[in-house]
């Protein structure tokens, strides 16, 4: 590819256009994204550091943090196993209906979070399909932790799979065939050949999946019942604190979620670079 030269004015915008475009972009990103992010921290510390840390001594807040971690610790591994299984089935074999299956896996991203919660209310709520059976057997799913976990699994369903499918398709199955030919078992092949090849992509999917699992609000809100100390996750606790005009505490909990978001962005940036490098390496080998 040729490099741009500054002498060809008709190939580059004038300085005025260039700098006004950059100024517009920075101003827009600044106003829309950076200032709201800063606001979270400013509001959290509005009444000083003491008030900020005081917010985390509240029992309900601590329980919300705990529930958020529990939910994510169940939802992420389940979607991880599914993601690996689905991408193995889709990338290593050819079969009729493959693109339809991929569309189905992506479906939860097209569904509004509120509807993602609603579907489980219709299944497991008191008036739902399994409602009377659940009541008879004293099992509670809606307005309880299982409902929160289910709704979280639904909204984070595609993350790992949609990261791994294109990666594994790109890598093909030559290396796996070689390993099998040399006498490795199916599981050994996966563990020693496939997994090292997909590890960065896998981690990338898991990080995005985790960020969404910990931060999901709409879907969880529908199934939670908002019982403080029992069925509140961090984002739900933020809503309650905010509606109680306890702004410092609401933003204090928000800072934890914001730090998680920033951490996710940094890791995402690093991993994108790593995955890109692996793919380039693959292309060079061809």
């Amino acid at each position: 590819m040729k490099t741009r030269s500054n002498s060809q004015t008709s190939l580059d915008e004038s300085k005025l256009v260039k700098y006004s475009l950059i100024a517009t972009a920075i101003l827009f990103l600044g106003v829309m994204l950076v200032v709201p992010l800063i606001t979270i921290f400013v509001e959290a510390f509005r009444k000083g550091a003491e008030a900020y840390f005081q917010s985390f001594t509240n029992e309900y807040v601590l329980q919300a943090i705990k529930l958020t971690f529990i939910t994510s610790a169940i939802a992420v591994p389940l979607n991880l196993v599914f993601g690996v299984a689905a991408s193995w089935a889709i990338a290593k074999y050819s079969f009729f209906g493959k693109s339809f299956l991929i569309t189905l896996i992506d479906l939860p991203f097209a569904v509004s979070p509120v509807i993602s919660g609603l579907v489980y209310v219709l299944l497991f709520g008191a008036q739902g399909w399994f409602g009377s059976w659940l009541i008879a057997n004293d099992v509670q799913i809606i307005f309880a932790v299982p409902g929160i976990v289910l709704a979280t699994i639904f909204v984070t369903f595609p993350f790992v799979a949609r990261e791994l499918i294109p990666l594994m398709q790109e890598q093909g199955n030559d290396e796996e065939q070689a390993a099998l030919l040399l006498g490795a078992s199916g599981f050994q092949t996966f563990w020693k050949v496939t997994l090292p090849n997909i590890k960065w992509g896998l981690l990338y999917g898991v990080i995005l999946c985790n960020a969404r699992a910990m931060g999901e609000f709409g879907a969880v809100s529908v199934v939670s019942g908002h019982i403080q100390g029992t069925t509140n996750t961090m984002p739900l606790q933020v809503e309650i604190l905010y509606n109680e005009y306890n702004f410092v505490a609401a933003f204090a909990v928000s800072t934890l979620l914001a730090i998680l978001a920033l951490l996710t962005l940094v890791l995402k940036y690093i991993l994108e670079w790593k995955v890109l490098r692996e793919l380039k390496k693959l292309k060079n080998e061809e």
Partner: peptide
């Protein structure tokens, strides 16, 4: 990197 902030930041926040 910050362009992805709305993806990563919980909607309630």
């Amino acid at each position: 990197a910050i362009v992805d902030l709305p993806f990563a930041l919980p909607t309630a926040v």
